[in-house]
Amino acid sequence: MRLERYAWRRLVDRAVRAGCVLSMGLALLPLCSVLYYVFSRGVGGLDLAFFSELPKPVGEPGGGMAPAITGTLKLVGLSCLFAIPPGVLAGVYLSERGETRFGRVARFAADVLSGVPSITVGLFVYAVVVTTMKHFSAFAGGIALAVLMLPTIARSTEELLKLVPEALREAALGLGVPHWRATIRVVLRTAAPGIAVGVMLAVARAAGETAPLLFTAFNNRFAAESLFEPTASLPVSIYTYALSPYEDWHRQAWSAALVLLLVVLLLNVSARLLVRHRVGGR
């Protein structure tokens, strides 16, 4: 009797284990499917024209995605410019003054901000930047992406700065180093690899965002000449091409998705390696 009950319990244990493994498999299935289709359908379209040519007028086959590629680079560059310095410094504030009342408010705001839907951020930047400047621009798109990156960078910087031993900060202060220099050259520098990982993950996320760009950077069939013109980007191009009825544009959408996915994967994998290297080095 007792043994039977044990056998039953073991059976339940096995079943749950099997269920967990099954769940893992179920989650990896779509990942594999996405990777497989993006690679197999996208790789054929990756020719020189894809990277160097302008899109053809609607319905004509051929052409490339050069404006979208440079546009995405511009947008990501701008958003880094707008988000990394204030994000890191806000992280410094949170790690040093995070227990004051304002510190708590700021941390709370960062957490809430990171949960705001990206489309809402797009609306906000449209209302504030696009309507005042009267046209869509890479500048506005960069701000929208920066708003998405800002809280992530601030919070990850805070967490990493808290890991820097107090002894190091005291060592620098004890040498008569001003607070700001000790923070930048000793504390931030020690935490730099970790902060870089946080930034890379934030960039990877921002690079693939589409919704906030729809009403900020908008789109452009031609290469934008300045940062204050409507600007194409890979994600928005994928979106518009996917909705089009043309076979050739679908093909290009897959290729663009492949490029985007490669960039995002590259950032994620190198962030991962950086973490491992750092942990292993200590």
Binding site: A27, L28, A204, A207, G208, E209, P235, L261, V264, N268
Partner: peptide, 8 residues
Amino acid sequence: LAAVPSVV
């Protein structure tokens, strides 16, 4: 799985 862009 979380890193794959939404549009993809």
